[in-house]
Amino acid sequence: MDGSVDNPDEAGGGTVLDRGVAAGAAMVCAIGVLGGCTFSSGGGSVESADTAVSTVTASSDSPSPSPSTAVSASRSPSPVPVTGPDQKLVTMAVTGGYAGVHQELILRGDGTVHTSDKGQPVVRRTSAAQFKELRTLLGDPALAEVPSFTMNMGAADMFQYTLHLNGRTVITDRSSDDHPALDRLIQALSDLLPE
């Protein structure tokens, strides 16, 4: 033997290719570890780009849920809290259609439903179970994902539903099937409107 090593791996050095793969793997690990870090110098801060992390870690055939979908799927609806008997939990106005409908509904914190149909007021009290169900529908986290305006602008003579709930206004004609939580709420409230 001349003292040379036939298998470089036995000498502990590895091939150039093996060392390159190991160095690349170490860089990927470093990017993954540092991907969420920020660096602050003086008055500003520089944040690392998340694209390297998502490129390295994305290896699933099925799409992962968006953050908002994951939040909705993980939280079950709970009844919205009531702060007092005069609290307006939700208001809904239904207008339009062939007959020129104009109905309004207010659900208050004491469980009463104030409705009007073309100005004729009616006050009814919900049962305890019905009031809890309505508050649970109002507490559905999926309602936060509903856009403020969903209307089919090409359609004529549709009903327009204007809801004030959870500090926001939602206007829809229910032409989209993309928001089942909103549809369930509108249906439950519509059942309380005068015939």
Rank of each mutant, 00 (worst) to 15 (best):
S127A: 07
A129W: 03
I186H: 08
A52N: 11
L193F: 06
S78A: 12
Q187K: 15
A23R: 14
Q187H: 10
M151H: 14
P121T: 14
S74F: 15
G97F: 13
M27Y: 04
V80C: 01
G109H: 15
P65D: 05
D157V: 02
D173T: 14
L193E: 00
T162K: 12
S148Y: 04
M1T: 04
E47M: 10
P8L: 05
T172N: 12
G14Y: 10
S54Q: 11
S62W: 04
T55L: 13
R174S: 07
A11H: 11
S48P: 10
G44S: 12
Y98Q: 13
T55I: 08
S148E: 04
P79N: 04
Q120E: 14
R75Q: 13
A11C: 02
A155P: 03
A99Q: 14
S127E: 05
Q160H: 06
G44A: 05
Q187A: 15
A99H: 13
A181H: 07
G111A: 11
E47N: 12
I171V: 11
D157M: 11
L89T: 05
R168P: 05
N166C: 10
A155V: 00
V56N: 09
G3P: 04
H164P: 10
A142D: 06
G154M: 13
S127Q: 10
M153V: 11
D140P: 11
S78C: 00
V5R: 05
R75F: 04
A49H: 14
S76T: 11
S72Q: 07
V113A: 03
T112P: 00
S68E: 01
G13H: 15
T126Q: 00
G24N: 14
S4N: 13
V28N: 09
A99P: 06
A26Y: 13
F131S: 08
A26R: 15
V90K: 09
R19H: 00
A181W: 04
Q160R: 13
N152Q: 10
P194M: 08
A129Y: 02
A188P: 04
A11P: 06
E104L: 03
V16S: 12
A188C: 04
G97Y: 02
I106A: 02
D18F: 15
T57H: 08
D183R: 11
A156C: 06
G96L: 03
R108L: 13
E47P: 03
E104V: 02
L189F: 02
N7C: 02
S60M: 14
P79E: 13
H164F: 01
G109L: 15
L185S: 00
A181M: 04
E10V: 07
A142C: 02
V170S: 07
V170C: 09
L182R: 06
C29W: 15
V46Y: 12
S40V: 06
P180G: 09
D191C: 10
L165K: 07
G111Y: 07
A73T: 10
H102I: 03
F39Q: 05
T169F: 01
N152S: 08
Y98W: 13
R108H: 07
D178Q: 12
S78L: 08
A156P: 02
M27I: 13
P85Q: 08
R108Q: 15
S62Y: 05
N7T: 07
D110T: 02
K132W: 08
D140G: 09
A156E: 15
M92T: 00
H114C: 04
I106G: 06
T57D: 01
A144F: 00
K88T: 04
G12V: 09
V53K: 06
G35E: 00
G42W: 14
R125K: 15
S66K: 10
